[in-house]
């Protein structure tokens, strides 16, 4: 059934205001969208990162659902433990089956990098949970350091623009494909401007009989260097320029969810954020051409895969 805002907007948010996200942060928008999409009880686990610290400065919590933070790297294992405890206690009749959905919200550092082993292990074992990667393409909580999700050419504090280096020199890791290669029921990429697409994916994910994963682009005004009001516009531009394709791998079958009628030029994407500012210099033209090729090739590869 098509999700309509008029139908859901009267529900109380499961993430309360008063959290300390930066002005214009997309992470909390995404969390709101995800939790609004899920009917029924939810238990949330979050690794160390922006979302964790902004929502739980003791003695405050913004969570209106059961929530846990343990450490940076192993949220998939923690959530696996919770999900398993639920299965065990329900099986033994110690608690009643409440049809709980288990959700992780983790940054790209916690997912692409330090937590990759843990998520791989957990989804291979088939724990039924939804893992949402809030992908802001760098370690934002520690102050904008590069991760393997950082795109080539982007400035970060550990891929600085110097006299000989033009920001990050490697393309980002294709984590969504890596997760899909585990052959779990549902894998997708999404972005918050496309709220209906995102929320529909969440509903498919939690309905799946097994692990599910959604990689959500999470624009960050501080780290990407743009004005806070542009967060959703930047998200839209990522999809329009095919830098962040919206697609899903539903039980192995790959489907594009959004195909721009005409692909926005990459240069518009690069111009929109200060982290790419140096790429506009004439001497970096060859790199921009290289990035343009990379995006075109990746897009073509995905389109072919989705045929």
């Amino acid at each position: 059934m098509t999700i309509k805002l008029k139908d859901i907007c009267n529900q109380q948010d499961r993430l309360a205001p008063g959290h300390r996200a930066c002005t214009g942060c997309s992470e909390t928008t995404i969390v709101r969208q995800v939790l609004q999409a899920i009917n029924g009880p939810v238990v949330v686990a979050t690794p160390t990162g922006c979302l964790e610290i902004i929502t739980s400065p003791y003695p405050f919590t913004s969570w209106r659902v059961p929530w846990i933070h343990v450490a940076f790297e192993s949220v998939a294992s923690v959530l696996a433990g919770i999900e398993t405890a639920n299965r065990s206690l329900v099986k033994q009749g110690k608690i009643k089956d409440q049809d709980i959905h288990f959700v992780a919200f983790a940054g790209d550092g916690a997912t692409y990098d330090i937590g990759l082993q843990f998520i791989s292990g957990a989804i291979e074992r088939g724990h039924k949970f939804l893992y949402i990667c809030l992908n802001n393409e760098a370690y934002m909580n520690t102050g904008i350091q590069r991760s393997s999700a950082t795109p080539q050419g982007a400035w970060t504090t550990t891929s600085p623009v110097g006299k000989v280096l033009p920001g990050k020199t490697q393309p980002r890791k294709d984590l969504t494909a890596i997760i899909a290669a585990h052959n779990i029921p549902y894998v997708a990429q999404a972005a918050p401007h496309a709220w209906r697409d995102l929320m529909t994916k969440v509903q498919k994910a939690v309905a799946a009989d097994g692990p599910s994963f959604i990689n959500v682009l999470s624009p960050c005004p501080r780290g990407w260097r743009y004005e806070p009001n542009e967060t959703i516009a930047i998200s839209r531009l990522a999809a329009d320029s095919c830098v962040w394709p919206l697609y899903e791998v539903d039980h192995g079958s790959c489907r594009l969810n959004y195909k721009p009628s005409q692909r926005s030029p990459l240069i518009d994407w690069l111009k929109s954020q200060g982290r790419f500012g140096h790429l506009l210099r004439p001497e970096n033209k060859p790199l921009v051409d290289e990035l343009e090729n990379w995006v075109a090739n990746e897009w073509a590869r995905l389109v072919k895969r989705c045929q």
Partner: peptide, 17 residues
């Protein structure tokens, strides 16, 4: 689990549950 780190992480999750 796939490591001892995951073992203790999962035990913590289970215990908190």
């Amino acid at each position: 689990v796939e490591s001892e780190h995951a073992a203790m992480s999962a035990c913590i999750g289970a215990s908190a549950a």
